[in-house]
């Protein structure tokens, strides 16, 4: 079977890969590129574990054909932290015990990032709806929601931001 050559910007770097026409972006990330941080929980867009940001828009990578990302920007969990420090969301999740098993965590972090990019100071309700596409079976969501609110507060407070770095 001939394979499709796709070039895109992945976490800031221009990269290319080969894939089958009907391979999903999720499968291309995991199986072609070895980026295993993006998880598959359902394959039907119902759990959010495979969430990535595509040209600034949160999507389930299991519902994107890999060839569609030609020329586009893809952000995954592997690109969330900077070289020497974590994203404030990652700090908040760690300090706020926002995960138990951790398999949904990459998806939650990407959904939360998309939410805070769009709405830097969300209410609790906005946070809950912002991550309603992400299932977590361990935490009951309490500590996830608190941690996202905490990250939003950190990011809008220059003092705390400095502290974090």
């Amino acid at each position: 079977m001939s394979r499709t050559h796709v070039t895109c910007v992945l976490n800031g770097d221009e990269i290319d890969f080969l894939c089958n026409d009907y391979q999903t972006l999720l499968s291309a990330l995991r199986d072609e590129l070895g980026m295993i941080g993006t998880k598959e929980g359902c394959g039907t867009g119902d759990c959010g574990a495979c969430s990535v940001i595509l040209d600034g828009q949160l999507v389930c990578s299991c519902l994107v054909f890999a060839p569609e990302v030609e020329g586009r920007r893809v952000e995954t969990i592997e690109g969330l932290a900077e070289v020497d420090h974590l994203h404030p969301l990652q700090d908040s999740f760690l300090e706020g015990a926002a995960f138990q098993c951790g398999v949904c965590t990459p998806g939650f972090l990407m959904a939360a990032k998309a939410l805070l990019d769009r709405n830097p100071s969300p209410t609790e309700t906005e946070v809950r709806y912002g991550v309603a596409g992400n299932l977590c079976r361990c935490t009951g969501y309490d500590k996830i929601v608190r941690s996202i609110l905490d990250a939003a507060a950190r990011m809008s407070d220059p003092e705390r931001q400095k502290e974090a770095t």
Binding site: L58, L115, G130, G133, N134
Partner: peptide
Amino acid sequence: IGSDQIQGR
């Protein structure tokens, strides 16, 4: 129509 993720598509 679906979650934020689905809304993106």
